[in-house]
Design a protein around this nucleic acid. Structure first.
Lengths: 207, 207
DNA sequence: GGGAATATTCCC
DNA sequence: GGGAATATTCCC
């Protein structure tokens, strides 16, 4: 049954279209970028000379990047830059599957399967500095709040409040660290400029 | 030389583009949006019938939103939506100063002062050490979550999860700020020791 | 008016 | 290829 619960949770934790918090989730529509890219292939107004599905419809090929940029892109998007198009493909997890030509694939992007586009999501930009942190805490959340309600409602509520409290405490500590860093930075810069001034005026250096 | 060294350093540390996380330095060129809006006013190709500076050049007035949207916007931006234009104005801190007409002001946006545009920064991305928005939303949540249970149980749960999510996001941002500060500190110390070495060896200094 | 998602650009 | 800033859209 409730895959819907899981989905709902994921929504709460991660981002998603709309940003509504407690809404019933679901069959939201695919990202505009995906629809446009799909439609642009179906259109094939040029007999597939510029861009087309590949042989088995498991991907697509941009045969002529120049014409694609000049003629096709601006009809579907607000730009005519091939690289911006590529950037979007990467954002949605498409892979370039040939070094010889501009052929791209995504497991959920196939000819005849427009409905499957909804399965494709943007890659979340998880900053590389502390990726594990977020991950683990998201998981925690998913676990604690996905039980059958009623009984566990109160319990998970308590856990959330607890976690919340800890997060705030942690935030304060981080903010104080940052304040110290700022002060340190200022001192260092001051010191540096002083040294350089002294330096310039002649020889004699201390900090 | 002088402060240019310092600037260089700060820029090296973070994202210089729009300048934020480590802040302390100003981007050298104004945001494209500001330049376009300024230029669009200078142009005044229509005799100021559609849009123009106000009397003393301390702000500007969109006299005809419809024509402005249809004719002016698409020549400078990738859209023709008045509301998107307004959204940008708000992002950069402009104020609507009349309920009767579309007149906007920003302290640093004045006729004849194109150079002053660099002083204008986007609102959203300056994570100050103690972000105020955060405080207020936390407080709100705290208040709203101790109402009578039952009905509000689910609601407050959602709010808690939302707050939780935000806190985690914030934590990540703070951690990234700290990482940048650490890197900056290292560079500064390196630079400092280099300068002092040079200094000691004789006269002839650069960093 | 502004938060937040997606789109586009810029840059490594 | 992808991080991150700005731009545009969507929604409250």
């Amino acid at each position: 049954m409730d895959s819907s619960n899981v989905l709902e949770l994921n929504l709460g934790v991660g981002n998603n279209g709309g940003g509504q918090v407690g809404q019933s989730v679901r069959p939201r529509c695919p990202a505009p970028f995906l629809l446009k890219t799909y439609d642009l292939l179906e259109e094939s107004g040029n007999g597939g000379k510029i861009v087309s599905w590949n042989g088995d419809g498991s991907g697509f090929i941009v045969w002529s990047p120049a014409e694609f940029s000049d003629l096709t892109l601006p009809r579907f998007f607000k730009h005519n830059n091939f690289s911006s198009f590529i950037r979007q493909l990467n954002t949605y997890g498409f892979k370039k599957i040939s070094s010889k030509r501009w052929e791209f694939k995504h497991e959920k992007f196939q000819r005849g399967c427009r409905d499957m586009l909804v399965e494709i999501t943007r890659k979340k930009c998880e900053p590389s500095v502390f990726p594990s942190y977020l991950k683990s805490s998201s998981e925690e959340n998913a676990i604690t709040s996905n039980n059958s309600m009623e009984e566990n409602n109160n319990n998970s509520h308590q856990l959330l409040m607890e976690e919340n409290k800890n997060l705030k405490k942690e935030r304060l500590e981080l903010q104080m660290q940052i304040a110290e860093f700022k002060s340190l930075e200022m001192k260092l810069l001051e010191c540096l400029s002083q040294v350089m001034d002294n330096h310039q005026n002649k020889s004699r250096g201390q900090c």
